[in-house]
Each structure stands twice: as C-alpha cells, then as structure tokens.
Design a protein around this nucleic acid. Structure first.
Lengths: 156, 156
DNA sequence: GAATATTTGTTGACATATAAACAATCCAGA
DNA sequence: TCTGGATTGTTTATATGTCAACAAATATTC
C-alpha cells in the first residue's frame, strides 16, 4: 500500500544481499559435494529420502525441492544409474513411483551428513542460536509474502 | 573449532530456510520478469549495466553475477539479438568487449525498475528498515565465511 | 457406469549453468 | 625483446532447470 518507491531502499538491498548470499552458499555447496561426485540437487534428493523409508513420489520430490516435475526425472535417472536410489512401483497408484534410498545411498549419506551439519553450523560464525531462530521466522514470513505476490507458484 | 555436530542444529535449519527462501524469491522473480519476456539473469545483467555508462566486460559481469564466464556469452548473445545491449570493442584491451545498454535497453529498464523496487520493499511486509540493515550485515558476514570455507570460489 | 477433468511421469525444445580446452591477447621477468 | 604465464571470450560437452504436449492412470461429476 506504500507508494511505489522510485529508488532502491534498505529492504531492496537486503533482498539483493539475500539472493547474493544464497548464490554464494550454493556454489560453496557445489564444491563441498563434489568430493562425493554429487551436485547440490542430487544431495538434496538423497537428504530428503534419508528419513523417509517409505520413499517419495517424484511429484512430492519436485514440491519439496521447489522444482518442476520434469526436472526430477533426470535427477532420479542419474542417481538410479549410480545405484543410490531405486524406483519402486506403488501398490496404491499405478501412475507413480516411490523413490527410495538404496543401502548404498544410505551408507553414502551417513558419511556426508555429519560433515554437512558441522559445516552448516560453522559458516554462521558466532551467530547465537536465538538469532538463528529469529532469522528462520523472518525468512519464513518473507517466503510466504513472496508466494502471495506470485499467486500459487505451482509451476504448471 | 566446535565439535562436529552429529545432528542438525538451529543454524543448519536457518541455512536451509535461507536457501529455500532464495529459491522461492527467484521463482517469483521469474514470473515477475516474464511480463517483459526476460529471465531473472537477463534482468540482472541489464540492471548492472544501467548505472555503468561505460559498460562492463563479460568477465566483470560474470563476477558481479557469480556465474561462469562461459555462461555470460549466451546471455549477452540473446540480449544483443533483441537489441537491449551492444558489444563494443575496448580501445585498451583487444581481448575484451565492453557490453553496454542500448537506448532500447535503458528505456525498458526505466519501465521495470520502479515496479521492481516497490515489489522488493513489499515482500518484506512490515520489517523495519533497522532490521533490514541488520540482516544485510549478518548475510554479508555469512557470505564472507562461506567464501572462506570454500577457498577462492574463482570458478576456474 | 460413462464422460470429463485432474494428476503423474516422460519427452522434446530450449534457457541457464559449470568445466575443460582453445585461440587471441596481454603482462611480467630475464 | 622475447618468452612463459595469465586473462578473456568462445566452443563443446554435460547437468540442471522451465514449459508445453503427451499417454496412462486416477478422480470427479452427472
């Protein structure tokens, strides 16, 4: 409801810095996961499947990862070729696969996760846990506002 | 120096939320810029060139946008075909082009920018300017820490 | 139950991204 | 000067991402 500003303000700069920071983190994570020959997106899939023994359908993965379902096809393809995940038919719905971690995928994640958690805590430096929680709230609100601006953001 | 945590902590969750929020914002901006048939990356190039009358070399663009120089080639190609930017030879260095906005590109940006600034302020809701500035500082520190973890992040 | 609409995964076309290799150019030190 | 190293932009190969269109299966509506 505020009048459209003709020049950038502090919230605009905060938005730019947020996007810039996320971009940097993504690139850093690319280097991090390259040790195991994984892309960040591949790791994200494995990570989501880790605490879901019953697996996920591809459409569920696409929603959790905020990407189009057609992109999941190729990602799961490559992970399946490497034996890290497996497509299983669902007994309830013959349209879908349930994608699950294989034993090899689980073993690989068990090597990566402790280091990943540690690195994630360390990049924040001395940021108190209280501030981290406050940040989560602010970012969550921002996320919701953005989705409101965009309509549903369903990607279809 | 802290002991590697075996399970996710609040800073880990803050990191996830940050990446998730950035992803959402990026998708929202895709819808936003689609009105002018621009991708977010294409807009970012135009935006950087807007207050640089002398233009940028492609390697400068790649550093400002945190992307590989080989990616800039195609982005500038497509913007040049549409007459929004122009490659000019540099008198000082025959290896490089100076990429500059054309009059058409400048005119297009003048239509987009006010709406972009306004939208960027609005997604934050009621966040005070003071908090925005604090956020910028925290994100900047996070960015620096991440770059430290990763080495130089030079993409080459 | 049959017609219609929706959902799911794949495909093809394309944009966006990285990395490696290359040619052209610039630069720094002997 | 000239020689070896670094930089810049392009190309090629490949991964990642969107979107539209499709087939198969499910869900909804009458």
């Amino acid at each position: 409801m505020s009048a459209p500003s003709p020049s950038p303000g502090p919230r605009y700069r905060a938005l730019l810095q947020l996007l810039r920071t996320a971009e940097t983190l993504w690139n850093v994570s690319r280097l991090f996961f390259a040790r195991w020959d994984l892309s960040p997106s591949q790791f994200n899939i494995l990570n989501l499947l880790y605490d879901r023994p019953e697996g996920c359908t591809q459409i569920e993965l696409s929603r959790l990862l905020i990407m189009h379902r057609s992109n999941v096809t190729g990602l799961v393809d490559r992970l399946e070729v490497r034996g890290l995940v497996q497509r299983r038919d669902s007994p309830h719905d013959r349209r879908v696969y349930r994608v699950i971690l294989t034993a090899a995928g689980r073993k690989l994640l068990q090597q990566i996760l402790p280091r990943y958690y540690a690195a994630a805590e360390e990049v924040w430096g001395t940021l108190p846990a209280r501030r981290a929680n406050q940040l989560i709230n602010e970012l969550t609100r921002l996320c919701a506002n953005a989705e409101g601006v965009a309509g549903d953001g369903s990607m279809d």
